[in-house]
Nucleic acid binder design. Sequence first.
DNA 1: CGCGACGTTGATTTGCCTCAACGATTGTGG
DNA 2: CCACAATCGTTGAGGCAAATCAACGTCGCG
Lengths: 195, 195
Amino acid sequence: MFQEIDNYVSQCIHLTQEELHIFHSLLNVREVRKKSFLLKEGEICNFEAFIVSGCVRSFFIDENGYETILQFAVENWWVSDIASFSEQKPSTIFIEVMDDARIITIDYQSKEELFRQVPKFERLFRLLVQRSLGNLQQRFFASVSQPALERYRSFLDKYPALSQRVPQNQIARYLGISPEFLSKIRKEMFHTKNK
Amino acid sequence: MFQEIDNYVSQCIHLTQEELHIFHSLLNVREVRKKSFLLKEGEICNFEAFIVSGCVRSFFIDENGYETILQFAVENWWVSDIASFSEQKPSTIFIEVMDDARIITIDYQSKEELFRQVPKFERLFRLLVQRSLGNLQQRFFASVSQPALERYRSFLDKYPALSQRVPQNQIARYLGISPEFLSKIRKEMFHTKNK
DNA sequence: CGCGACGTTGATTTGCCTCAACGATTGTGG
DNA sequence: CCACAATCGTTGAGGCAAATCAACGTCGCG
């Protein structure tokens, strides 16, 4: 049941049987279906979710109605709106299930309780957020300094599995370009490759 | 000497006299001059720095030689390359002093020592990184969904003091546009305002 | 079957960049 | 103290990456 998340946690911190037990007692397991939403804009995010199986995406919608995808989350990834969760303020993003998923969540009170009972978890979540920050920084740099073609190449390179699993227009929205333009880029790629 | 940083820290966690003493013993104070570099691309970042006075900027240079500014750091801000620091790997960014500054730094070993002796600091730095992540996320959204004019307006709104203190071409590099284009935007702003 | 989701293609437009030239201001060495 | 170099902002001409809009083909599915 908790095997996957325990594995994940043990990469960062070492826990006793006792501590593990406390941890588990504060978690919830949920099954969620494709096309349902874990979070909508305006709601206060009351969970951090660990994906056991399935696939979800977080995105926001700009004033023109276009989506930009912040994250695809598959097995062994965390997803949440940290700003909304940690400051308990309305969210600016949506989190939607793309493929039926099994997730493990922890709510705000339980997380604070966890920190109180097992302070080691402060370290786990610090490392986790730190890594997210590093990744987002990379992505920010790429989005301002690289043309779409190179960003697409990097994506294929970094997430080969995802590029099979996720529809092309979603990838475009992740890369920050229109689906039409991604199509044109791909055409160009294959064209120049076979020559 | 440590007044500013103590104030900052006490907003997040409460420390005893004893703990405060340990904290101070692990810090270094430095004066750094305009145009000097705290960090260059390729070096391993061995500090997290708290700005007591002065102003520094962190930026990266893309393959065409253009700079993009990640952060301006003034009084009471932290600056570092977290990815490089926390994983002790070569940095991809530069950190340069814009105005003579007094800074307080902590190195990798001292930070780990601090965590060992006063675990509360795990919490402080978790909150700190969490806030950075929230800010960067905002900025990322803006950079893909808003035109330059609105991003400039937001900047003026959010950092009124900085916009006085920092040359215009640096602001352009922060916004991710060319200095020439910012000049044209400004012209447009004043033009439409006075009509 | 027919509908909706997805990908492709072309025509047109646009936001922003690049390059080059030109004042204004500041700083600096002779 | 002047002269000259840097640094900074402005303006214009021309160009390009990517968006928008519209139309069309193709699946898979209720």
